[in-house]
Design a protein around this nucleic acid. Sequence first.
DNA 1: ATAAAAACATGATGCAAATCATAATATAAT
DNA 2: ATTATATTATGATTTGCATCATGTTTTTAT
Lengths: 230, 230
Amino acid sequence: MSLAGPETCVSFIYEISCFELLTPEEKELVDSRSVLVNYKKGENICKQGSFASHIMYLEKGLVKIFLEGNPKDLILSVTPHKNLMGLQALYEGNNTFLYSISTYTESVVRLIDIQIFKQLLKQNPLFAFRIINILNESTSQSYGRFFSLTHKQLHGRLADILLCLSRKIFKAETFDLPISRSDLSDLTSMSTESVIRIMKDFKDDGIIDINNKTITLVDVPRLDRISAKG
Amino acid sequence: MSLAGPETCVSFIYEISCFELLTPEEKELVDSRSVLVNYKKGENICKQGSFASHIMYLEKGLVKIFLEGNPKDLILSVTPHKNLMGLQALYEGNNTFLYSISTYTESVVRLIDIQIFKQLLKQNPLFAFRIINILNESTSQSYGRFFSLTHKQLHGRLADILLCLSRKIFKAETFDLPISRSDLSDLTSMSTESVIRIMKDFKDDGIIDINNKTITLVDVPRLDRISAKG
DNA sequence: ATAAAAACATGATGCAAATCATAATATAAT
DNA sequence: ATTATATTATGATTTGCATCATGTTTTTAT
């Protein structure tokens, strides 16, 4: 087994900054051609297959980006605030959303006209270069997860997700989990029952602690070993 | 089940064109700062984890791009000629190869200095925009495969790969397969024995025909149904 | 406050697919 | 040509995990 650890993360990027690469006029253009939208917990931000007329920037909140399947979805990423979403819609000839996005918490999203966004890319190469970096970062994480889900068994996969949530999303060893067991199962590609059982295993072994919605990673090195072993 | 069909493909892109977006001077720069290297069948082009000093463009041949695992690899993509490889190394702060690449057939690779490539991206926004499109196309396919490998069972996964090889790589219903059963297993994330058994199933059911290394997809609609059903 | 609906939990059963074992073909090497 | 090595093939066994069934707790709605 290889590819353990941070590469298997579910998050896109900690926080991205790209707009500071724009000129004042370009920033103003973005402002004038974008809108802020508020979403309540559990709401859909975009729907897989529908037409994509804008790029989304998560100003505030926590969301999941997922492929809809029958009967089970596949969560591609849990994305915290300050991340761009829906960049794949830039791909010419595919103006539909590849995935659905919905919120875990109250969120604020900036919707940026996709034509404006394309224009910025074409006129500001440093901005374009930054976007390339962002896409590559996200691809790297995606490959790590790909490996985790296809080559590790249940305990390793759940360890990966718990470590990632702790390190990348909540940045703490104790955190309130707004993600249900069922969503954890969509994230790890296993049944909800298995998530529950393995969480209990971890708790019984003193690796994690569970108090209602609050999770504490008690023995991180052990989780790392479980992740590495697969 | 959803996400069947072409989205689950193993190939990067049919053929990409990006260099025609360069000015004559830029083209010359690329020529002067790149070298052509010949590889024999089965050779390594790059090795996961090693330092990446160049972007690779496959002029001729067929290769696999894969994550190395123990004991089994995960093949991310089978890539035909006229494709860029190793673009993830553009990501600043990660100058190592995310994956290994090795050849299925004799191949010719152009190695382009990564600094030159970055310079082109930063000075030629249309070129950068094209690269963004290429990255997005590859991400789209990657998501489809992600879903296929995690949510479909063996027959569906193998059907996906066979359809993709036929449609995207060999562009014919009959083709000589330079890919071993063991590699097909790394491609579908299953055991080699399962690949062999399911190939036999398909043959017994008159869905495909196998003659030595030559594969014929006899009943494509049926394969599509198997792919869609999962 | 009370009912209704999610979410969480746990045991019993069944099955898909890996693993193991062994052999038959190919392909490559000397 | 002849051995050696890789690839393909098939059956027997095991196992990891999903599914099913049922119950409990927590959250949401009225």
